[in-house]
Each structure stands twice: as structure tokens, then as C-alpha cells.
Design a binder for these strands. Sequence first.
DNA 1: GGTTAGCACTCGGGCGCGGGGAGTGCTAAA
DNA 2: TTTAGCACTCCCCGCGCCCGAGTGCTAACC
Lengths: 344, 344
Amino acid sequence: MPELTERAQFLLKALTERYIRDGQPVGSRTLARDAGLTLSPATIRNAMADLEDLGLVSSPHTSSGRIPTVLGYRMFVDTLLSVQRLDDSVVERLRDTLNIKKDSQNLLQKASNLLSDATRLAGIVTLPRREHEALQRVEFLPLSDKKVLAILVISDKEVRNSILHTEREYSASELQQYSNFLNEQFGGKELSAVRALLVSELRETRENLNRMMATALDMADQVLGEAEQGSDYVLAGQTNLMEFQELCNVSTLRHLFEAFNEKSQILHLLDQCVENEGVQIFIGEESGYQMLDECSVVTAPYTVEGKVLGVLGVIGPTRMAYERVIPIVDATARILSAALNSRD
Amino acid sequence: MPELTERAQFLLKALTERYIRDGQPVGSRTLARDAGLTLSPATIRNAMADLEDLGLVSSPHTSSGRIPTVLGYRMFVDTLLSVQRLDDSVVERLRDTLNIKKDSQNLLQKASNLLSDATRLAGIVTLPRREHEALQRVEFLPLSDKKVLAILVISDKEVRNSILHTEREYSASELQQYSNFLNEQFGGKELSAVRALLVSELRETRENLNRMMATALDMADQVLGEAEQGSDYVLAGQTNLMEFQELCNVSTLRHLFEAFNEKSQILHLLDQCVENEGVQIFIGEESGYQMLDECSVVTAPYTVEGKVLGVLGVIGPTRMAYERVIPIVDATARILSAALNSRD
DNA sequence: GGTTAGCACTCGGGCGCGGGGAGTGCTAAA
DNA sequence: TTTAGCACTCCCCGCGCCCGAGTGCTAACC
């Protein structure tokens, strides 16, 4: 990263802020007025030429003002940005909305809506990863006609059930035996571990197991298979993106929306944010995905009991109000984490 | 509806088909060549002038070809359309995809995808209405720490559960008593009836009821409240709509997509289709919703055991290939109904 | 009478032109 | 080092232009 004189930094900051504000390339005259410095446009022009040489700004054509490059934005958010303190009322609102007691799916949807409302961008929240969930308990309930309801208690917040199709009818007490067996064997273990154990056990001892055991294992495996489905996310406020000039041509929008539907690419990007804690920002091409070339993504992981469960964030044009967006994403992540933790 | 000479009908049909094919206003010369009739452009012009007087076609400006009006489309789909017979392979594909055994949520999503894929438009499927579902059984399971898992068995296909927060801990046997009571009282009744009964019973006899009954009713009410959430739909292939010239300006798209997110208006429209059986079509303004002015909606209800559960369909530009779309929507509705019926 | 050829007319779209404006780089002076 | 001055560049916008496609009307034709 090249070193800049204080003035150059100041100008880059002013230019970027101005450009973010009204989306027009910023000229030397405007900047001179804007910056508050008592410098003539000519001086500014010299400084801008330097910034251009360093690759921090560029001009769309010969005689127009400058706009920040990706590198310019990078420096802006990394070292120049003065992050706004969040208005208490906003925090209050976030907290209020997320503190209602609801199932987590609903909570994430709410969070996504909040993000998109507060930033006027698209909000995104990944569903919690399931890998490290532990199996608390399994219960089986007989339904009519060779069907069994399996209930998988993962925590006091997460319960999943699935309907199994069996080859014969089972009595309640018989099913009770099975679940007892499974709970004894696997209760408290991580789902992935349970699955692995089940598979190996099925392979090793299938011949020797009596019919009951085999069925129990089959059932559990069937349920686990469903429980460990692929990751996903909830999205809100995509339409907000249609308000921005720079995204407003149909082909750009189409690629973006197709990526939203496709999910895999976006998920892959968000997955990278799981490791780093705190707010993380991808500017334009940095994401490595073409459809996001003119977008920035601001993310933060959310946690329960210290473990990162998922990622939330916003997607918007590179020209977004970072100083407002960053604290919102940050706060939402914290508050969502708190809500997930404290729920009784 | 005005009566038309055979020739006028033929010309309207040819014109509409042509316009649907390539989206350009159709001129007399083109139509003369296209129609297969050995008529000169001048003759066609006369006939077109008549059609215009009847409000069936219009020209965007003085010297351009004609395009069908909403009325023209209406006559086209009602009396002129030669619906294509569906290719068997397509039916096969529909049937294959919908016959996998999956929970209904998943099935509807699949159906929506199929619709959008097969028509290259946006597919939509409303979630089944819940009103007439009967409560088969309720079970309670103690979780740790003053929490109780309530399981609501609605049918062999639908099970919902929710976690209740109680004021004290309950033993398994105590909970068993509650569920027995509820099952005796309400088993087999419709959810709405159950709810009504509960409310009145709570009001009338609250004072006299012992604590157990009250808790049981509270619990059940809490669960039912969640179960009877508002209606909803699954959507697929919105991005397909971005391919059409006539929808391709950002503001039109925005209104459309906002309506998709909003859901209430679209749902209201779809609700109208529940009553009529078979395929139903709204062309342009006919829907009564502004954001659909340049769109048509083709719907068909799907049923289980003769009862209409929901509606599916597609949304696309008025200029859509009705003769292809209609049988696809029709077939999908039938096949989805069959799949929902036959699932074991 | 229905059909057709001919003709004048209309309108949208594409193209080139020219002027104005915003902004630049360079040079030379303060 | 900063600044004023100046020539230059390029976008944008409006204007006039022409071309082509298509129309309506009229008059002739079968």
C-alpha cells in the first residue's frame, strides 16, 4: 500500500465521500469547494493526477472528474473512514424487533428485513450451520398405516421432525425401545459424529444386529440425512438495488438476481467470512464474482455461545454509504447473536 | 362480444400469433405474406381498420403495424386459440419430477420451478390453505428447563411442532394426561373449529377449570396460533421476466418485483382462482392490479381429494405463448394434484 | 361489391453536425 | 509550492435530415 501525504489522503476521502453522496464524477473545482481547504482547483488537479498515478482514482473519460477505483475504496474504508456512531434509536429498533420470541427461521428473516430497511440495500442472512449441532434426543411416534414420526431434538430451540415409511407397523412401546437405545448411544453427540458412527456401525455389524437395532439405525440415518441438508440464506430488499443508477441496466440486474436465485456463489462468498470475526468488506471485483463487479458486500458473522453460526450482511453498489452501513451490519450481528443466545 | 366474419377472425388470430412470436407491430404486408391467404396488403388493411374500430387491435402510432389490445387477446384466447397438445416427454418430465416423495413444501417448490422452466416465465404456487385441515393428534414432550415441545399431527403428511415456554416444569406423565384430554376433546376436528372451541371454553369455564386443564388449553391455543399463519406462495424464475423487451425497463420491473415481495396483492388475485376450476387467464389490466398491466397471469387450482387446496400458475408478459403455456399450467396442476393425493 | 394498385402522407429511428459546458493538462508566473 | 491562464478534449443535447415502413384514401378492376 503506497504512502500518501496527509493532503492526498484528505482529498481521497473528500472525493470518495462526495462521489458516494451523489454518484457524479468529482472535478477539481467541486472538490476545492467541498474540501474546506483553501486550495485552488489547479493545486487539486495536481494532487488528483498523483492519486490517479497510484491507481486510487480514475476518470471515466479524458475530461471528466475522478471517481474512486476499487483500490481507492479499499484505502477509504481501511484507513480513512470515520465510522458513524449508531443512533441509539436505531439500535433500540433493532433490538426491539429481534427480541420477540420466535423460531430462529423467523428471526433470521426479520434480521434480513431489518438490514435491508436500515441500509436501503439488499439484506442477507445465512441459515445457521448445522455441522456442530449436537443431538439431544430422538423420539418416535407411531402414526397410522406403517408410518412413524421421528422427532429430533437438537436443542431447546431446534426441533426437527420427519415422517418415516416403514415396512410394518410398530407399537408405541416398541418405538420407545428404539429411541431409548438411540438416546443412550448417541445422545449429546454431534450430528456429524452420530452419522459417522451410524454408518460404520451399519457396515460392521449389520448381519449380527437383530431386526430392531437395524430399523432404529435406519430410521435415525434417514432423519439425519434430512437434517443435514445444504446451507441456505434468506434475502430481503433485493428491489432496493433497483434504485441505483449504476446497477440499473437490466442485464446487470439480471445477473445479480440470477446469482441470488442460484445461491451457491453467494454462499461461497459468505462462507469466507465465517472465519474472520467482525465486519468484513468485499469491494467490487475483490469478491471474485463477476456479477458482483459493481457491488460491495459488507458482512459480519453471528455467533451463539462463542461459536460462529452464520453470516449476515448487505449487498449494494460499490458506491454505498460505508460509514452508515458498517455500524448497522455490525450492530445487527451483535444483536442477533444476543437474541439467539438469550432466548429461553 | 362483437361478431366477426371468418376472415376477420382468421386475421386477428394470425396477427396475434405473429405479434406473440416476435414482438413487433404487424403490418398489412407482413400479415398478407404470413396468413397464407392470397390477399393483397390493401385488402388486409381494410380488414384491420375494421378490427381497430372494434377495439381488438391498435397501432402504437399512426404509421406502424397493429398489435392486439387486451380485448383482442381476450378473443384470441377465448375463441381462436388452438391449444397445443402437450408433448408426452414434457408430461413425463413433469410427472417424474413431482413423483419423488418429499414433504409438500418441497413439492410445491419443485412445481414452481417446473412451471418457470417449462414456460420460461415466472412460476408461482400458493401454499395449501390450512383452514380445513383437521387435527389428528397432539403430543407433548418435556424438554429441559420449563420448556415443552408440542407436536401437532394434522395428517400423515403434515406435522408441525412448536416449543412452549411454561411457568413450571412438567413431568412426562403429566403431559401425557394433557394430550389425552385434548385428543379426546378435539381429535379429528378441524383446526378452525378447535380454535373456536378452545376460545369459548377458555372464556366460559376458566375459573372452574383446574390448573391442568387451563394449561393444556393454553398450550394448544399457542400451538394453533402458530399453525394457522397467513397464506403464502413460492415463486420461481422471476429473472425470466427480465428477458422480455416490454418489461425491460427498470421501473416496471421494480413494481413487479415489489409486488412479488409484498405478496398480498398477488395472493389476492390468485385467491380469485380458487373457485373456478380449470385454467383461468388474466390479461393485462384485467387483473385490476397496476403492476400487472403489461402482464398476463395463467392459473389453475390444484386439489386433494376433490378439495381445492391452492392455486398454481405463471406470470409473464401479455405477449406470451398462450397455446404452449396453458396446457403446461393445466398439466402441472393435474400432476401436482395427483402427486399430493397418491403420496403415502 | 369486394379486391387491388397507386399515391400522398405520417411518424419513429438513426445519423451527422455544432455548440455549450465541465473538466483536464500544461506552462509560466507569483 | 501554489496559482492563473489557456488550449484542448470529450460528453451531452438539440437540431435537421433522410429513410423506411406502414397507413388511409381513391380510383380502377373483376
